[in-house]
Design a protein around this nucleic acid. Structure first.
Lengths: 224, 224
DNA sequence: CTTGCGAACTTGGTATACCAGACCAGCTAC
DNA sequence: GTAGCTGGTCTGGTATACCAAGTTCGCAAG
């Protein structure tokens, strides 16, 4: 994964790094993100750090509280499921639109992403697999040729990154995920809107099941 | 509409005022939003003004450009339709969930909002009607008991406020809008998910038609 | 008259300093 | 011993100063 230090602004670069810290778990849910401390640690001033925190807050990874330190978001199971439901609706729309508007090149690219994920799944760093998986889904969204949809979908993917990370670590889900990716790509290649919607529903349903399992196992230590 | 000067931060209050300026048309699409000038005009420093601009940018009302002044967003017809498609998907989900989860009280409140809109439609200030209409739709979303959905839906409502404003000024659409509101409420009262989805689809379809008409009439003066 | 170069101004980006409110610890008075 | 106040300290919020990059306009040379 390429570094993102070439971002337009410092704030975005900081947000990128902070995001990875959060998703990797170095900054666990509930941890405070103090403007001063973090700014000093990363060697920047508070201004861009502040803006970076706002970016992550808008994405839902960080929770702002009036007159308190922002904290890493610690969504409950029900909140995560709510978010997945929205993501689901967005992906259904993108699947439908993609069947209608995707170019053959775009479909081919989606297919090659599917193949790459198959090849590295279970071998490479989980976070890297994730960025590929995100590219797979984002490519479908991009193929729908709807900028607003792409933007909102991207925000939800980032917001659910941690949940998806936890979900994907469940080994039993591996084959299912790969099979579903294949089915989604096949439906898109046939431009079969109903089929792709069904496959996407199954894909998201599996994700919910995984996350429910995770919460059940991990115990609901002071969660809601 | 009550003032929002009681917001947590100055930036949010500025964002609120700026948003109204944009939606009222005092700041027309394409107008530059210079940090220094606007900050001075409103008597604040650049810092909160900057943050306010970022808030509006995230909402899509303002467009940020690297190394250029931000400008009031001037979406093309196709971009607006793309956004409405997303809004449509969100409202379908909210209608479906609301049928399942809404309390009787919530449904009653939605009904009373519908009645209030009927009563003042065409008489009160258009912007006020709009905030009521927004409350009607937001109440349905709230009744779906999905915080993420509510948040994203609210962002799209704000983003499309101007387009909806232009759409609703078309007198011919008045009766249709009121009838559709009534049908949506009735379907919700029956908890008929399929019916509410059909009605919402019609509602959004009418909105697209109105906006297409507007663009056709207004001429595509240097629009994309 | 045209064209190329450069300086000044305008812009957003960043750093720093200051402010006010909230929280906490320790002391004091009952 | 405990409850309540009070000072210090930590926090985010705001203002301001500085910087670098881009645009523009004017002047001079051809």
């Amino acid at each position: 994964m390429a570094k993102a230090m070439t971002e337009d602004s410092l704030a975005e670069a900081i947000a990128y790094e902070l995001r990875r810290e959060i998703l990797r778990g170095n900054l666990p849910p509930g941890a405070p993100i103090k403007e001063r401390d973090n700014a000093e640690r990363q060697g920047v001033s508070r201004t861009p750090m502040r803006e970076a925190i706002r970016i992550l807050a808008k994405e839902g990874l960080v929770q702002l509280r009036p007159l308190r330190s922002p904290v890493v978001a610690d969504p409950s199971l029900s909140e995560i499921i709510d978010q997945i439901r929205v993501l689901h609706a967005l992906e259904l729309l993108s699947g439908e639109l993609a069947c209608e508007k995707a170019s053959d090149d775009e479909i081919a690219r989606i297919g090659s992403l599917k193949d790459r994920i198959e090849n590295i799944y279970g071998e490479a760093d989980t976070l890297d697999v994730f960025e590929l998986d995100m590219q797979f889904h984002s490519a479908i969204v991009a193929a729908s040729h709807n900028a607003a949809l792409a933007e909102t979908h991207g925000a939800y993917m980032a917001r659910l990154w941690r949940a998806r990370y936890l979900s994907a670590r469940r080994r039993l889900s591996r084959d299912r995920v790969l099979r579903q990716h294949k089915a989604i790509h096949a439906a898109l290649a046939r431009r079969d809107a109903n089929a792709i919607k069904a496959e996407i529903a199954a894909h998201l349903g599996a994700m919910i099941a995984n996350i429910e399992d995770h919460f059940r196992e991990a115990g609901n230590d002071e969660r809601g």
